[in-house]
Nucleic acid binder design. Sequence first.
DNA 1: TCCCGTTAGTTTGCTCCTAAATAAAGGTGT
DNA 2: ACACCTTTATTTAGGAGCAAACTAACGGGA
Lengths: 403, 403
Amino acid sequence: MSNDRPAARGDLVPSAVLGLLGTRGPTSRADIARTLDISPATVTQVTKLLISRGLVTELDHAPSQGGRPARLLGLVERQVGAIGAKVTANHVAIVDVGLDGTVRSSTSHPFNPDAPDALDALGHILGSAVDDHAGTLLGVGVGIPGSVDSQASGVVDAPTLGWTDAQVGPVLRRALGVPVLVENDVNTLAVADRLYGEGRDHSTYLVVTIGRGIGCGIVVDGALYRGAAGGAGEIGHVPLTLDGPLCGCGSRGCLEAHIGEDALVRTALERGVIGPRGTVAGLRQAAEAGDPAAREIYREAGERLGSALAGVVHTIDPEIVIILGEGIDAWQHWEPGFEASFRGHLVPSRRGLPFVIEAWDEFNWALGAASLVLASPFDSTGATGDQGELVRARLHTSVEATS
Amino acid sequence: MSNDRPAARGDLVPSAVLGLLGTRGPTSRADIARTLDISPATVTQVTKLLISRGLVTELDHAPSQGGRPARLLGLVERQVGAIGAKVTANHVAIVDVGLDGTVRSSTSHPFNPDAPDALDALGHILGSAVDDHAGTLLGVGVGIPGSVDSQASGVVDAPTLGWTDAQVGPVLRRALGVPVLVENDVNTLAVADRLYGEGRDHSTYLVVTIGRGIGCGIVVDGALYRGAAGGAGEIGHVPLTLDGPLCGCGSRGCLEAHIGEDALVRTALERGVIGPRGTVAGLRQAAEAGDPAAREIYREAGERLGSALAGVVHTIDPEIVIILGEGIDAWQHWEPGFEASFRGHLVPSRRGLPFVIEAWDEFNWALGAASLVLASPFDSTGATGDQGELVRARLHTSVEATS
DNA sequence: TCCCGTTAGTTTGCTCCTAAATAAAGGTGT
DNA sequence: ACACCTTTATTTAGGAGCAAACTAACGGGA
C-alpha cells in the first residue's frame, strides 16, 4: 500500500525543461508551461535560473498568435547525448544519440550471451562506445529481451539469452562509471515512442512488437507501466488455445507459440511452403511471390494477433495501438487477417480504435534504449530511481563546468 | 501528453488523515506518516490542526515497539457515513454505511431500467435513503454494470440495462443535492477491497467477478486503473475462440459468451442437465448432488476462466488476484478446472501467483459503491474530480458546525 | 486613432510539504 | 546504574510551485 504523494523529487522541473528544449527544440515559456503542465510563474522562475546558469538562452521572437509574440528559448549548444544498446542472442546493437534523438553513430558487435563472462564482455563493448562518445554523456540505456526488476537496479531474467538473475545493471555501472538504465526491450520502444513517435499525441497506448517474439509495452498517462514485478505486457504468453503448440516458456497455446517467428517457420515447413532449411525470409518471399499457402499462414497469424490484441485492448483500454518490430516488413500479409479479426472481436464502442504501423530498422531497438536516458528528466513516477537522479545531475552540471 | 505534476490539491492531506482514522481506527502519528507516505512533520502539523478543530483526539499509548511508545489518535465519534447503491436490471440494492465500513442498514428496491423515467425513479429511491440517513452524509456512490466516462461526471453506457449515454451523475446530483460518484460496479469492488479487503496489503491487484457477466477491476499502485475511456478491465469480452458462441456485444467467442451465467445455463440445457426452464441454481444443485455432467460444465468453465485470467495476468502483472461475485458460491466446482489451467498457462516465474476467493452476498455490490465515497479522501489521482472535493469538504465541515 | 481583446511573461505573497535537528520516552546489554 | 539504541513526536528553516494580479506587446475593429 502506498498512497503515492508527489514524493521527493529533486529539481525535477528544471530538468524537465532542459529535456523538453533538448527534444522539442526552441519553445516559448508559455508553451513549456502548457506542455509540462506547470504554471507560467514556475516557468519564469526556472528559466531565469537556467539562463543565469548559462544553460539556456533567449532566441528570436515567434510570430504573434494574436497577442504578444512569444520569445523562444533554446538550449545552449553543447555536446550532450546518450548511448543506447540492444542485446540479442548473437549481437549487440549500439547507437550514440544527441539530446534531440538524432543518431550520431550506430554499430553492431557480435556477442555471445551464453559465455560465462558475457556481462564483462558486454561491459567492454559498451566501454569502447562510452570512450568514443564526444562531449558529455548523460548515461547508457540497455534494452534486454526479458524481464527487468527495475530500471535503476537492472537485474535481469531473460530466457532467450539464458540469463537468470543476471546483474546487468550493477556490473555495467561498475564497468562504465556512468548512469546505466536497464529495461525490457519492448518497454524501451514504448518510451521512445513517447518522445519521438505517436506517443507525443497520446498519453495511454500500447506498443506491440512482432518478430521472434511478440511483446507489448504499455504507457499509461504518459508513464511506462511496468506491473508489480516489471513483467507487464508479456502478451507473447497470453494463452490463445487450451491445448496448442508447446511454447518456450513451458506452457501450451501461447500467442508466441502460434505466431512467433519460429512458429511461422514451423508451420511453413509443415505445409511445404519452405524447405527444411527455410527461414522466415523465405516464407516472406513466397508470400511476396504470391504463394497462396504462404499468404494463408500470414493471414492466420494476423487473425490470431488481432484476436489477442482485442483481448489486451479490452483489458487496458488504450487510446491507440502502435505496431512495429522486425517482423513488420511483412505486415501487408498480416493485415488482411488482422484488421477483420481485431475489430470483429472488439465491443462496438471500441471498434473504431485506431492502430498505426511504424517503420522499422534494426537500430530502433537501440535508439529506444537510449531514449530511456533521454526520457529520465521527464520521469515523474520515479521509475528511473537513483540512476535517473544521476542523469538529471549530469544534465545540470555538464554545462556548469564549461560556463 | 501530460507529465502529471502533483497538480492542484485542496487540503488533501487532512482529509486523507481523517479518512485513514475513519477506516483503519486508532493510529499513531508515525503510522499515519508511513501509511500515507508523508513526512512525520506534516502529520504533526495536520493532526494539531485537526485536534484544535475538535475532529480528532489523542487516545491511549500503544505498547512500545522498542522505542518511545506511540500515542494513538482517533476520530471524535460522529454520525458520518455514506450511501452506496448497486443498480441491476430488475432492482436496486442500497446500503447505508459508517466511516469504518460498517453496514448500518441495507434495503432492496424493485427497479425497471427500461422505463422512460428510470433515472428519476432511481433518484426517488435514493432520495428516500438519503432522507433516512441519520447524521452527516458524505455522499452517494452508485455502481453500474457498464462503462462510466468518469466518476465525477457519471455518464453511463450500460448494455445490460439498455442505457446509452445515460446522465446518471447529473440527474442524481440534481435530485439528491449531495456529492454523487458513479462507477462501473466491478471497479467499486476493487475500491472496496483496497479499504477493507485484500487490497490493504497489496498495491497492485485484480478483482475478478464471476456471475451473469465476467468483470475485472484493476488497481495499480493503490489507485483504480480506469483506462483511457473508463473501459479498462472488460475481460468479459476477451476473445477465447476465433469462432465461438455469439456474445451480447455482437462479437463471437467472448469469455462471457463461454462462461457467463447465460452460457452455463445454455450448455446445461443442451446437455440435458437442466430442463428448458432451468436456471443456474438448478445447475449448481445438480453439481452439488454429484451429477458428473454438471460438474464437467463447471470444470470446463473453470478451465476457460483460468486460461483467460492467465492472459490478463501476463498483461497486467499484478501481485494477487481476488475472485468473487454472485457466482462464487459454486466455486468449489470451478476450482478443479481453474487452478490447473490458470497456473499451467502462466510463465514459470509467475506460476506461484497467489489468488484468493472472497465470500459474497448481494450487498457487497452496494457496499463497494459506498466505499467509492469513503475512499475519496485517499484519492490522490483526481479520479473523483469535483465530487471528491465536495466529499472532502463535507468531511471537514461536518464537524465544524457541531464543535 | 484609440480602445479592447488576446496572448506572453513577471511579480508577489502565499500554501503545502519536506529535511534536519532536537526532544521525549521507552527498551537493552554490561 | 549507566550508556546506548530505537522509535516517536516536535520544532525550525526553507524549498517548490501556485494563484492572482500585474505589466508587456501585439492585432483589429469602430
